[in-house]
């Protein structure tokens, strides 16, 4: 199977999963409440996040053909996303300032005068397109890494907290070992070992980021384990596994949601730092920023590249943080409505 068709399948799966979750969520009062409250409290942030997700999905659906490649054999067999197709044939020869009608250096006339909202880079690629394509990478890093790290942390944290003793000792040993190494060095080493593919970078980020949540889940489980309702369940002969699934994990869910949101922004930032060190993922905002570093020192300076990636990164993180803050407030039982 080709890489691009796998990507399409993943998109289809994600859409399906999202839809199912939405349907399940509608039936649970708590999650419905979260959504309603979110729409009421942070409509703009929610809209921004939804926009980024849409762009990322548009960039993930790809197929071959349908574009006039002008006799270029490689280009003919290249899988292009919906986003690519929207910007097809808009390449320039070199730098163009935003909305300019001549090239930045040399003042040769452009192929599409005034058609580049955010200008072009050194290879003449539209910066707007590059920025939009960065959304996919950012969401992939945040999402995939969280998907690896959070279940891992939950599994270790809950078992350590619930059974304690040896298991706790083991988990704690691993956690302390990881925490005792400088995160950035560990990250660099892992990327060097695992390679620079997207999945490898995500894996490396996951390994370095699960410890925090694991500690949180462990502590919370310690507390929950001694709650009277868990004791009552034990007195009722309920099995450990069932207690974990029915009593402990559901009562950790609010932490999971909050951690996901906070982790997400942290991860996107980490990737930017990795890119800056030359170890990031192809096409990420971090890489754009890295490349734009040198361009700033030209005279006159090329500023739009850096600005576009920076603003896109900043906006996404701000929106996600706003949403996360709101979700935390909504899920906090103390702010939930009291019995009437």
């Amino acid at each position: 199977m080709q890489l691009w068709s796998a990507s399409n399948l993943v998109v289809a799966g994600l859409l399906l999963a999202g839809l199912t979750l939405l349907l399940i969520g509608r039936r649970h009062r708590l999650w419905r409440e979260v959504f309603v409250q979110l729409r009421r409290r942070r409509p703009l942030a929610l809209l921004v996040v939804a926009g980024y997700v849409t762009v990322a999905l548009l960039d993930s659906v790809r197929w071959v053909g349908g574009v006039d490649a002008g006799g270029d054999v490689v280009a003919q067999h290249e899988a292009r996303s919906v986003l690519d197709r929207l910007f097809a044939g808009r390449r320039e020869r070199s730098y163009s300032a935003p909305l300019a009608d001549r090239e930045f250096y040399g003042h040769a006339p452009l192929r599409h005068p005034g058609g580049h909202l955010l200008g072009t880079d050194i290879l003449g690629r539209d910066v707007l397109l590059l920025t939009l394509k960065g959304a996919r990478v950012a969401l992939l890093i945040g999402g995939l890494t969280s998907l690896i790290a959070i279940p891992l942390a939950l599994l270790f944290g809950v078992s350590a907290g619930y059974w304690g003793r040896r298991i706790d000792d083991g988990v704690f040993f691993v956690m302390s070992t990881l925490a005792s190494m400088p995160t950035l060095l560990l990250l660099i080493a892992l990327v060097m070992v695992l390679g620079r593919s997207t999945v490898a970078v995500c894996l490396a980020l996951a390994v370095t980021s699960w410890v925090g949540f694991c500690r949180l889940a462990r502590g919370e489980t310690f507390k929950l384990r001694e709650m009277d309702y868990v004791q009552a369940a034990r007195a009722l002969g309920v099995s450990d596994l069932r207690i974990l699934l029915r009593h402990i994990v559901p009562n950790l869910m609010h932490l999971v949601v909050i951690t996901f949101v906070l982790m997400f922004s942290g991860l996107v930032l980490s990737e930017a730092i990795l890119s800056w060190l030359g170890l990031g993922i192809e096409g990420s905002w971090g890489q754009m920023i890295d490349q734009a570093r040198d361009e700033l020192s030209r005279d006159p300076a090329i500023w739009w590249n850096l600005a576009a990636a920076g603003v896109a990164l900043f906006t996404l993180l701000l929106a996600v943080n706003f949403v996360g803050d709101a979700v935390r407030d909504i899920l906090d039982p103390r702010t939930r409505r009291e019995p009437t």
Binding site: L30, Y229, H247, N251
Partner: peptide, 12 residues
Amino acid sequence: FQDPMASLDPRM
């Protein structure tokens, strides 16, 4: 138990 709030799972 003593504390009826603590002895009921808030999510059930």
